[in-house]
């Protein structure tokens, strides 16, 4: 379960460039005044939300509405400016795949590195090694340095590692399937399996069809505004994101 209370994440719109240390020391007071007047952008503002276990929360909205920021906040990679996020369970983030990969090392080494960073034990990874490489369809390349992998192979390995991370909460930032059509089908099957096994899923998406099909709750974000749809059955037939935004009164 995830409980979000009064969550706000703000960024300053720009930074004051001091130029040089001499300039900074000579104009210290002026710079302090300038910093105090910088306009603040609220990527997420005063959000309250409960996500129960086995729910599928879809976060949608136009570009720049704060969807990825919220996903990162829940994943714990960035800190809120104010408010709290209480998480019960282990989170597996699919925010960006293969972030810790080292190109010089083999696929197997990268499995251990990426897996341990996702919180998996070395023993578990050794046990699941074959399964992970077979899922990624690159079993023969286990001992090949990652720099010789195609970009599709790298993504498949990263996706496979994250899919085997055995978490309670999965956060997808528009990455639901990678690779060719066959592998994409495999990814969707794995995703459906997560739903079947009652995992909590948070997904950032622009796909209205996907929302209608899978969401149990929808959070629609617009700059400095949000609207939570707790019962998706109340949604009228929607054509695209604009019609959803209009339904929310944005």
């Amino acid at each position: 379960m995830i409980r979000i209370q009064n969550l706000t994440k703000s960024y300053k719109r720009y930074i004051v460039h001091y130029g040089s240390l001499k300039n900074f020391l000579l104009n210290f007071k002026k710079f302090r005044k300038q910093v105090a007047t910088i306009d603040v952008l609220h990527a997420v503002k005063n959000l309250n939300l409960d996500i129960q276990s086995s729910e599928v929360l879809c976060i949608t909205g136009p570009n720049g509405a704060g969807k990825s920021t919220l996903a990162k906040l829940i994943a714990g990679t960035i800190e809120p400016t104010s408010g709290n996020i209480d998480v019960e369970g282990r989170i597996v983030p699919f925010l960006e795949l293969g972030v810790a990969f080292i190109w010089e090392l083999t696929g197997e080494d990268n499995l251990y590195l990426n897996g341990t960073l996702l919180g998996l034990s070395l023993n578990y990874l050794k046990k699941k090694k074959k399964e992970i490489f077979e899922f990624a369809e690159i079993f023969d390349f286990m001992n090949t340095p990652l720099k010789y992998y195609s970009s599709g192979m790298q993504l498949r390995l990263a996706f496979s590692i994250a899919m085997h991370a055995a978490g309670d909460i999965y956060i997808f930032d528009e990455i639901l399937a990678v690779g060719d059509s066959n592998f994409q089908k495999k990814c969707f099957d794995a995703f459906h399996n997560l739903i079947k096994t009652k995992k909590t899923i948070i997904i950032v998406t622009h796909d209205i069809e996907f929302i209608k099909k899978h969401a149990t709750k929808v959070l629609v974000l617009a700059p400095e505004k949000h609207h939570l749809i707790e019962d998706v059955s109340v949604l009228p037939p929607l054509e695209d994101l604009n019609s959803l935004l209009a339904f929310c009164g944005f």
Binding site: T77, I78, L95, E96, V99, A100, L118
Partner: peptide, 9 residues
Amino acid sequence: RSVVTKIKV
């Protein structure tokens, strides 16, 4: 950077 900004560690 990629590790600390993308994975909770």
